[in-house]
Design a protein around this nucleic acid. Sequence first.
DNA 1: ATATATAGTTTAAAAGTAAACGATATTTTC
DNA 2: GAAAATATCGTTTACTTTTAAACTATATAT
Lengths: 221, 221
Amino acid sequence: MKNDKQEKKMSLRVITRVSFYYEALLKLDLPQDSFISSKKLEEITGVSCNQVRQDFFYLGISIGKQKKGYHVEKLFRALRRVLSVDRGAEVIVVGAGRLGRALSEYKLFKIRNIHVTALFDVKPDLVGTIVDIKGRKTPIYHIERLEEYVKENTHVKIALLTVPESVAQEILDKLVELGIKGIVNYSPRILKLAKGIKGVQLVNDCIGASLYKVVYQIYHK
Amino acid sequence: MKNDKQEKKMSLRVITRVSFYYEALLKLDLPQDSFISSKKLEEITGVSCNQVRQDFFYLGISIGKQKKGYHVEKLFRALRRVLSVDRGAEVIVVGAGRLGRALSEYKLFKIRNIHVTALFDVKPDLVGTIVDIKGRKTPIYHIERLEEYVKENTHVKIALLTVPESVAQEILDKLVELGIKGIVNYSPRILKLAKGIKGVQLVNDCIGASLYKVVYQIYHK
DNA sequence: ATATATAGTTTAAAAGTAAACGATATTTTC
DNA sequence: GAAAATATCGTTTACTTTTAAACTATATAT
């Protein structure tokens, strides 16, 4: 079966791996006209060389040279394109607790051209303060100002949701109502979009689950 | 094909969902002798009722009554058993940055009987301080004391790894060498166990990837 | 007695992963 | 310089896991 080279829809797994390839290239900072093999990418990212080639095939990136690998500059451009790095994104973080602030300064967002422009919370000791995110002064606003902010900053289309699960669904609905088009929910509950909502991207991510798995595996061996 | 009811190996996906069921039961706090249906569990956890039944079937939990659902007390016990909640776990966090500290106070660890007993870091302004984790005073030690700590606290078998990716592999290897049996790696790189290592559980979890996915999806619609 | 809600089970479909294979450019050997 | 060996790719195939749907049975309610 031939790969038809048209744009494919990537799953979360694929996107994660492709991001790793991109970040590996950035980190290695090889000469633009050198080559990197799938084996080398395995070393750096931990993704098997078979999987690397499979991903490139799936994405229509067929620029490899036998016995050498992939031309660094070409690969770099190809990855930037599939990831839409050039377009970047400004996002807000709703819930300025430890997790929210940790995400705000997540190192790898910067090189992906993703920037947190504001945080929101209800806690009086957080609201009104300014956090420093890689040199940028970023404010924490009261959550009441969410609506105003989103309406004034129409380029902000994405929110990271790090509020307690008890209010997560409610705030998600509010965000969607305000026109937010992408949400990552980090509360330990699978949130859902209200019926009939189209064109909004929602990803649920439970960061505690990995530890659950390890605990489980240790007791079941 | 009959379900043979022997203990099955759960994947991360299954464990995550089962944890949600367990946490939903805790949260609802229904009378012990009432019933809860798969539909109701869908409402609370976001997991479809089909998937709920499928999971229970897979796990050999067949305690449902038609037209009523699952007996709350029985279900509660069954879930505790498959998750090994009773045995609990004490874990350490290596890397006391924002993410490390966020995880330390992760609400749902407590109800799963998981407790962080110590954090480790190299930063002078962190080392020596005490953080309060749900009422427990928890120390941040210099990472040099890792070996000593692990050897003195042999019941600690699990570590959460929240260090920069540049040192992640190195510290993972160290942890394994010291006898740690389970590690969750939160750095954006797929770490691997050294060749020949058996009986150690490693899960790689990249918390930034979900946002990457949302950004991607928004630009590819 | 019939209808309905709900479970348990099976089946089918989709997604994801790993492995194998053939092709070819470069390197090595004679 | 020619032939053989090798590294590496692109592609295919097979396998496994995961999810979704459909179906059957039954206890309760009408």
